[in-house]
Design a protein around this nucleic acid. Structure first.
Lengths: 248, 248
DNA sequence: CGGACAATTGATCTACCTCAAAATTGGTGG
DNA sequence: CCACCAATTTTGAGGTAGATCAATTGTCCG
């Protein structure tokens, strides 16, 4: 299940970065010529584990992954969801010991890029370094918004807010449109991301369906009332800092 | 209340960065010669406000500040506390529109450094750029840990965890030692950081005092049972990624 | 068709919230 | 040194959002 890199694969990364930054042709070309080894993984497999010291970064080419931490008593907190184009462990470039885990949620295709190549790339192209840095800063902004959700929003508002966020992020990289996006997560996954029990997530989802805000089944989320979903969650997309202006 | 920069002020920044990175003399010297305008602010003043587009960064020289967001109904979520040596809005270098606010919690002395100077510095010294990036990555790691606290820990565990974190961070920059550190926060501030009501914070603190884990009054936190505090909060300092090995 | 996993339901429980009042503290001016 | 004010902490009573536990149903898929 190993193959050598090809431009088509790395193109996902360019698309992702261009949703938050702007490149010239040289820079684009340099990214596309990054070396990478590709692998296909089953759902639920760990890519990086707490206290690893990786020497490469993972680029998701297909499927979904999440970052999480397990605490005593087996409770799990999910920090982020990742899709094609994301480098979920970019931070390992500058922080050597990882402090959480990364796992696939679905079957996924992942490319591994040596730290060395990325360091060389960022050294030669400060604009690319800035884009990577910007990506990690936006991630921190999303963490802050999740904190607001967990600390100060009701479960209903929090779920609605997450759906708005995910739709816009997916749309920005061409993976969603027309108020419809893939969402191959179980209610347990959602609960672990939101800080809720799966039972309560279920009840909130039912209420949202009943009110005709969304429909969600078969791994697809359909937003049936975007404006209303924005309103109830007080969603303001500024924090996503997307270059391409978000859909209204 | 304005004065020109001096090395003594910027030295706080070097101390902070050296708690998470290592510099050569050239780099240290370059940081020390950053220009800065210093100002003294009263408690409760906003330094940066949601949707500002600042052209300078704030370096805290003295006192405490916090970053926060207010949502509908006046609820506040605090994301981080900042002390001498911190640049709480470093991200504005790469993300132009800020998506939250920054305010003083106590009387504070703050130095303002133009973005231009910081950009020039990071362009000339990649090692300093890496240290700044590393600082923002560690901040994200702390956000993740706060998410665990809000989503998956009990109030008691969460408070204990925060105290462990703050003590180690302050100790790393020489602002704490001997299990004693400044903590000039009201119970309302703590609640807004932890996602709890001030009433509940109060009850948790009483319980922690009753169990002889801490004492807290007059703006000073004394940790009376470090090991026990670590144990109940399952505290693992890895995520702080401190260079200087933390006290046991 | 059977097995595994995911979604749903029901019943009960509790950690934490809200509201409101009282006590304490720290600073200030007389 | 005391009296007073504002801010903060503390206490009490009652309420509720969301947790837990355990069963049932639905869905996918080989």
């Amino acid at each position: 299940m190993l193959s050598t890199s090809n431009n088509h694969a790395i193109a996902m990364l360019v698309r992702k970065l261009e949703s938050i930054a702007t490149f010239c042709d040289d820079e684009r070309q340099a990214i596309l010529s990054l070396p990478a080894k590709t692998r296909v993984l089953q759902p639920g497999q760990d890519l990086v584990r707490d206290s690893d010291r990786p020497s490469q970064c993972c680029l998701i080419l297909n499927g979904w992954a999440c970052r999480y931490k397990i605490i005593g008593g087996g409770k799990r907190q999910i920090f982020s969801f990742h899709v094609a184009g994301d480098i979920p462990d970019l931070q390992s470039l500058h922080i050597h010991t990882v402090d959480h885990s990364l796992a696939t949620l679905t079957e996924a295709t992942v490319a591994f890029i040596p730290h060395e190549s990325l360091r060389d790339l960022t050294a030669r192209f400060p604009g690319i370094a800035a884009a990577f840095w910007r990506d990690t800063l936006i991630e921190a902004a999303i963490f802050r918004e999740w904190m607001v959700g967990m600390g100060r929003r009701s479960a209903y508002e929090h779920v609605a807010h997450l759906f708005c966020e995910m739709y816009l992020k997916l749309q920005a990289v061409g993976l969603a449109g027309n108020y419809r996006c893939p969402l191959p997560l179980t209610q347990v996954d959602l609960g672990d991301a939101l800080g809720l029990s799966n039972v309560h997530v279920n009840r909130v989802l039912q209420e949202m369906r009943r009110r005709k805000l969304i429909s969600l089944h078969g791994g697809t989320l359909v937003i049936e009332a975007w404006d209303e979903l924005n309103r109830v969650s007080e969603f303001d997309p500024t924090y996503l800092h997307l270059e391409t202006r978000a859909a209204a």
